[in-house]
Simulated assay, not measured.
Amino acid sequence: MKLAIFSHCAIDTITINGNNYEQIGGAACYCGITARQFKFDVDLFTKFGSDFPKQYLTEQKINLINSNSEKNTTKFTISITDSDRTLTLENECDPIEYSSIGADGHLVSPIFNEISSVALQKIKDDSNFLFIDPQGFLRRKDSQNNIFLANTDLDLSDVNAIKVNPEESQCIVNGTHDEMMLSLQKKGVEYVLLTNKTDVSLLVKDKIYSITLPIGEIHDTTGIGDIFCSAFTCTMLKEKDFLWALCFAGGAAQAALESKNVGLQKIPKKGTIQTNASYFYNLVKFRDI
């Protein structure tokens, strides 16, 4: 099966407890490599400059589409304290160029301003199953290039699944957690995922399914949401079962956090994800809404 991913690669300088780590990343890398763990072929629509070590992706047999740019790669500095993090944009690469491609599913996860509304509409027109992580549509920068989230009118028609945290969802809709999930559903989304630190909820029709990640000490949270999104999408495409998709997504996030690794090294193996997913499957709670 094939997954088409739309996102910028990035070069991140991550600060954890006063220690600096320079890592390649971006949702493009985290989602793409996670999908390869699920044995998916990956077509990656992205942009990066000559400063980006693309061999790391080509060695993973990820197919790069129109990726080269004369500009340097998008770059962030990320400061992490427990589960909270602050981002500063150091460089912004060219927008992603869209071209039509056949795939079983499409995953759109911008990190900052790289996917236009025109490109998103073209992706919708071509997609059989579309998952959106809207973080990059909501991000803005202030005069010091610090990243913040802003209210955004986002067209979610023809979107199959979305993943948001409470802060992101408040930029699209209003209300309590339940009310925001229902509002996102009314905008046209079939599967609404809300991640609130260790609590993960999934709204499908008139029921909310939930799991809680038994996370211990938190180290590097960079890319956890991307790993989660890719695992959910791949499982939905393969199994056509939203409960298994929820459990595999949670299992992938849990395994990545438990690894205590930094950057892309935290992406877990399929076997570890599957073990965690089986654990969560027996613990899923649900309620009517």
Rank of each mutant, 00 (worst) to 15 (best):
K2T: 14
A4P: 00
I14E: 07
G26Q: 00
G26V: 07
A35K: 05
Q37N: 14
Q37T: 10
K39V: 01
F40W: 01
V42A: 04
L44G: 07
F52I: 07
Q55N: 14
Q55K: 14
T58P: 06
E59S: 13
N68K: 14
E70K: 14
K71D: 05
T73S: 14
T77N: 13
T86W: 01
E90I: 14
G102L: 13
D104I: 09
L107K: 02
S109C: 14
I115T: 02
S116H: 07
D125T: 10
N128H: 13
P134W: 02
Q144W: 02
N145W: 00
N146K: 15
A150E: 15
D158Q: 13
V164P: 05
N165Y: 04
G175C: 06
T176N: 08
H177Q: 11
L184G: 05
Q185D: 05
G188F: 08
V189R: 01
K197Q: 05
D199Q: 15
K205L: 10
K205S: 15
Y209V: 10
I215N: 06
T222D: 01
I227M: 06
F228M: 02
T233I: 01
T235A: 05
L237Y: 07
K238L: 14
K240C: 07
L246D: 07
C247H: 08
G250V: 10
A253R: 10
K266T: 06
P268K: 09
T272A: 13
Q274Y: 11
K285C: 09
D288L: 06
